[in-house]
Amino acid sequence: MSLLEVKDLKTYFFTDKGVQKAVDGVSFSIDPGETLGLVGESGSGKTVTALSILNLVDEPGKIVGGDILLEGKSLLPLKASDLTQIRGRDISVVFQEPLTALNPVLTIGNQITEQIMAHMKMSYRDAKERALLAMKEVRLKDSDRLFYDYPHRLSGGMRQRAMIAMALCLRPKLLIADEPTTALDVTIQAEILRLLVEIKERHNMSVLFITHDLGIIANIADKVCVMRSGKIVESAKVEDIFYNPKADYTKQLLEAVVKIPEDMRIA
């Protein structure tokens, strides 16, 4: 049985100017330990798809159709209180902008421990221990000091590491990574990607990796879904996407990639 199954998902935005079909009949599934890459241009509905899985779409957006199953159980009919149990514990998210995704007036330590304490019956002392461990796992140097630091004192890469520590501290079954490296510079991108792959392998997690960067997909994904205008235009194994693309749009995307000589590639 697949870990996550998205069936014919439809998320529409009801604006004054009319209905915007951000996600219009998207289906895919992720097996345990598998990495699914969701690729597409800006505005193709990748992020809305990810947010729909956790029912985090803001007004005026609404999930109007389809189903989302986690280990065979539908997430859509869940009450808000049951949903909070799944968010952050079974399914975690790393967002695109580490600059704005962390709360500026709470310390890093506070933001990690609160997540642990929201899901586990644990004393603050134990939660802190666990948070420090998570910070070490993502290789945040000097974690004892960083624990009491505010986000604005950290670099972009360090903040993204803190976000990853937060997302992974409870060993989720599924990690949704929504363009986790887009806002970072290239050398840091490579480090963060390597870190994600390493942690994923170690804990046999499933990952839904959202990006517009085909280079990253080639490196880490098992399966790929190509999205455009709220629909999936092609979905296949990663080798097939690169060597044997079917849809015209996928071919166009591949042609648009800047070619880098083999010996200069990362990872």
């Binding site: 947010l51 956790l54 985090l56 803001d58 808000a80 209180s81 909070t84 149990q85 799944i86 968010r87 952050g88 514990r89 975690s92 998210v93 967002f95 902008e97 704005t100 995704a101 962390l102 709360n103 500026p104 007036v105 709470l106 609160e114 997540q115 929201a118 899901h119 976000m163 937060m166």
Partner: peptide, 27 residues
């Protein structure tokens, strides 16, 4: 309430009470 870190707080599985009174109110 429109900020990214509020969405992060919700995605972490915090209760709506914590989201509003801890994360949002302080800011």
């Amino acid at each position: 309430l429109r900020q990214d870190y509020i969405r992060t707080a919700r995605a972490k599985g915090l209760s709506e009470y914590l989201v509003v009174y801890k994360h949002a109110l302080k800011n």
